[in-house]
Amino acid sequence: MGYSIRMDRVKPSAIRSVQKRIASKQGVISFAAGLPDPDLFPMDDLKKSTMEMIEKKGKQAFQYGLSKGNRELLQVLAERMQRKEGVDAKPENIVVTTGSQQGLAMTAMLFLDEGDIVVAENPSYLGGINACRPYGCSFLGVDTDEDGIVISDLERVLAENPKVKLLYVIPNFQNPTGRAWTLERRKQFMEVINRYDVVVIEDNPYGEIRFKGEHIPCLKSMDTMGKVIYLGSCSKILCPGLRVAWICAAPEHAVMYERLKESLDLQCNEFAQLQVVEYMKNYDVEGHIRKIQAAYKEKCDLMLSLMEENFPASVKFTRPEGGMFIWVELPEGLDADGILDEAVEAGVAYIPGEFFYANDGAKNAMRLNFTTVSEEQIRKGIVLLADVLKKHA
């Protein structure tokens, strides 16, 4: 029995294949993860809130629910979008998804046809790119710098390619670079996309994990034409195992997402949705987020200071103000994937940067994660990695 053409386009995750290489050696200090710190999950409050939810709404929690999402959760998320992001959101703008990855997959399903073009930042989150691959589209990358997406490059790509249908961007503490777009760059971006018949996916899983600087308005708050599809998530501010995330979009788009949900999985996990409602309504979620911010800042600052002290001067890296990642650029000619096995043998691991590009990417780059390692592991691992880089850089 033959599989569909779409399956020929689905590629295995290069990142997970790297992690298999890492897992083959015991005791490796891994900066390769893309996970939140499980020690920061609010376990006691989650236990209490879950039992309280079962007492109050147990029968509802174990029953089928609405495809669009639990009504209480829709209201909670709409109010959060208003309060935290400055978006004039109502429940009719919100659809609950099983993680942001489902939001990416449904957006690709909703908007892409054979031959369309998807534009992503160079580099970008591979999961966003892979969600689009089954639909026969091609990909173009737009350069980024320390302020965000490069507007002149974006203008050129859109002007030269009328088949661009979808833009995928992560303006806040991007995976993999950790960079956040400036306010001016966001305004310029919206001015450009308003002149073209395109849809923008604003993926914002890290936006609330800002531990330095001032909050910058999201693209959706500047959207006057209904072009921006905002993806939010509880995975980084609560815990990823709940798989509770959401789409915020124009009502006409939200209706279509709801129709897709009906055909895909009927609904998200009602139990998990009500867990989130109970926790967000009756527990200190903002205080919990502040704990995450403080913990990540401490680890990020430590890693950066050790990199400055130990890495060769020819190695450059970002200095994020939030999120979970640091992007490292090696001298031209070096292959981060080529020296990964040597690093693993030395006892430290990372994700090579070339895997974060839709097409061919920079081989002389790597992504480091600081959230799932202890301070002791950071101190030891960065020195080990520096010793490897000194042999090559």
Rank of each mutant, 00 (worst) to 15 (best):
M1H: 09
R6C: 10
R9D: 09
K11M: 11
P12C: 05
S13D: 14
S13E: 05
Q19L: 14
A23V: 13
I29L: 00
A33R: 10
P36Q: 02
P38K: 02
P42K: 05
D45K: 07
L46I: 15
S49E: 00
M51E: 11
K57D: 15
G58C: 04
K59V: 08
L66I: 13
Q75F: 05
E79I: 06
R80A: 12
E85R: 13
G86L: 11
A89C: 04
T98L: 15
V118I: 04
V119Y: 04
V119N: 10
G128Q: 13
N130V: 15
C132I: 01
G136I: 07
C137Y: 02
D145C: 10
D147Q: 13
V150Y: 03
S152G: 13
R156I: 08
L158R: 02
L158M: 03
N161C: 03
N175H: 14
R179P: 09
L183V: 06
I193T: 13
N194F: 11
N194E: 14
R195I: 05
D203M: 12
K212G: 02
I216W: 04
P217S: 10
P217A: 05
M222P: 06
M222D: 09
K227V: 12
I229G: 03
Y230I: 10
L238R: 01
P240V: 07
L242T: 05
C248K: 08
C248H: 03
A249D: 10
H253G: 03
H253P: 02
E258L: 08
R259K: 15
Q273P: 06
L274C: 08
K281E: 07
E286N: 10
G287V: 00
I289A: 02
I289E: 01
A294M: 11
A294C: 06
L302C: 05
M307Y: 01
M307Q: 00
S314I: 11
V315C: 11
K316N: 11
R319M: 15
E321I: 15
G323P: 06
F325H: 15
I326F: 11
A336M: 00
G338A: 05
V344Y: 00
E345H: 06
G347I: 02
P352M: 02
M366H: 07
F370L: 10
F370D: 00
T371Y: 02
T371L: 05
S374H: 01
I378L: 00
L385F: 01
